[in-house]
Each structure stands twice: as C-alpha cells, then as structure tokens.
C-alpha cells in the first residue's frame, strides 16, 4: 500500500434535487483494500456512490481514479475505466436469464475468452447461480438476486467495486454468507471494494478502513478495528449498552463529534 490511492474523493458536494446530500466529503481507497462508509438512512451514502459512478454530477469537488479526474464523466465512460457500481436493492434485469445478466456485466469488455473464464469464476463463488443460469433473474429469491448483482459486477473484472448496501433486506444468515464471499473475493482475487452499509458490525468486520457519514459529512474515520472499539460507534451503530459505572442512558449520551 504505497503511492497514490486508487480512488480519491476530495471535498465532494452533490445535490439530490434541491437538497444538498453530500456536503464536502473527502476519502480515499487504496488498491486491494475494503473501505466501508457507515451511516444511517439519508446520510448521503448512496448519493456518494452515485456521484462516483457518474449517475449524478457533483456540484463541487473532485473524484480522481488512478490519477485521472473523472467527476462529471458519462457513466459508461466511468464503467470502462473499471469502476463498477453494484446498486442497492438488487437491480437485476428481471426478464433476462442469469447468464444474460452476467454477460451484460461484461458489456464494455471485448476479450471473449477472458470473459468466459470470469463467468466460471463467478459460478465458483456463487454456485447457486450456475444452477440457475438459464432461469429468468426476476424469478430468483432476494438473496440470489443480490448474488447475481455482485456476480454481474465482477464480470467487468473491476478495478474497484462500489457496493451499495448488499445486506439490505436479507436474512442475517444470508448476510453472513454474502459477506464471507466478499471477503474471499478481496483476499483471493484482490478485488478493491468500497462498501456502503447501515449494518455497521458486519461491515467493520469485513473492511480494513471505515468512514462514518452523517447528514452529508464524514464525521469519523480510521482503521476498522479501531472504529469497532470506539465508544461512539459501539453506542450508536453497534447498539451495545455500556456497562459503565454511571450507566448513562443511551438517549442522554451526546455524540462526541457533535
């Protein structure tokens, strides 16, 4: 982990309609890392990802990827740089088969034989997709659709994967399973990830570095292990009661960053 970070966001400001959803966010992701951005509903996490992947244009600030400034570029240009966005809520192509969904993940690639190898790799990590490869994606269960969305993202052979709440609406068991696979993908295939989550515990267990976002700002950041030990994170994101001698009530506590 040397040299310039793979992805660097500087003082990004972005509007969601009339609302300023991101108010000056800076963060960086090193190659090979998993970086997680935690935050509640409406903190601006999804807007941050959409601004990076070019679906939304920033008002101010810069996004640089691999040394080049990419903010405001057309989404398909950004995808062909190797940035893939796995959207929230498992946005698959419902009437296309699993196989066709995967092929579309490699839409910007031309190297056919390598694409087929990557398809096999996706099937290795998600065997259920191999079983269902000719089935329409809309008929898969929620968890399988999430796996398909991740697999489809992998088909780009991305340099970085932006994951928007992969745990959303899944059973705890499935969340465990999917996060275990994400961890393996990072270790075995070296996939760099930026992971946006509300489920702080599982995200911090997986990630190397974490950022905490509240109403459009980064309020805290650091190594995932350190964040996990932080009293604020424990109280507000992990929901642990401290057994302190004064045993303050949770609602009495003030966040130290306010």
């Amino acid at each position: 982990m040397m040299g310039a970070p793979l992805l660097e966001v500087r003082n990004l400001e972005s509007f969601y309609g009339p609302i300023m959803a991101i108010r000056g966010v800076s963060l960086s992701v090193e190659e090979g890392q998993i970086v997680t951005v935690l935050g509640a509903n409406g903190a601006g996490k999804s807007t941050l990802l959409k601004t990076i992947s070019g679906i939304m244009d920033p008002e101010k600030g810069s996004v640089s990827f691999d040394g080049a400034e990419i903010q405001g570029e057309e989404p398909h240009r950004i995808v062909s740089r190797g940035i893939v966005h796995v959207p929230e809520g498992r946005e698959v192509f419902p009437l296309l088969s699993v196989d066709e969904n995967l092929s579309l993940g490699a839409y910007t690639r031309k190297d056919r034989s390598a694409i087929e190898r990557d398809r096999e790799m996706v099937f290795e990590y998600f065997p259920i997709l191999a079983e269902r490869r000719h089935q329409e994606a809309g008929t898969l269960s929620g968890g399988q659709q999430q796996m398909l969305a991740i697999g489809r993202g992998l088909m780009l052979r991305p340099r970085i994967m932006l994951l928007d709440e992969p745990s959303l609406g899944l059973s705890p068991l499935l969340v465990q399973e999917i996060f275990a696979i994400l961890g393996r993908l990072n270790r075995e295939e070296g996939v760099t990830m930026m992971l946006v989550e509300q489920n702080a515990r599982i995200a911090l267990e997986l990630a190397h570095v974490g950022y905490v976002m509240e109403i459009g700002r980064i309020v805290m950041n650091g190594d995932a292990d350190r964040l996990m030990q932080s009293e604020d994170i424990k109280a507000f994101y992990l929901g642990q009661q401290e057994a302190g001698q004064r045993s303050e009530k949770r609602w009495k506590r003030k966040k130290t960053w306010r």
Binding site: S80, V92, F93, P94, L95, L96, L104
Partner: peptide
Amino acid sequence: LAMQAASQNQMAAYFMGIP
C-alpha cells in the same frame, strides 16, 4: 441484449456501462 436491458432496468443498464 443491451436494448432489452436498457428497457427492463434503465438505472442498472447505466451501471453496466451501456450508453
């Protein structure tokens, strides 16, 4: 295939790099 994709889920089609 890209045409089908863009008509079934426009947002996801953008994410796949389909113009």
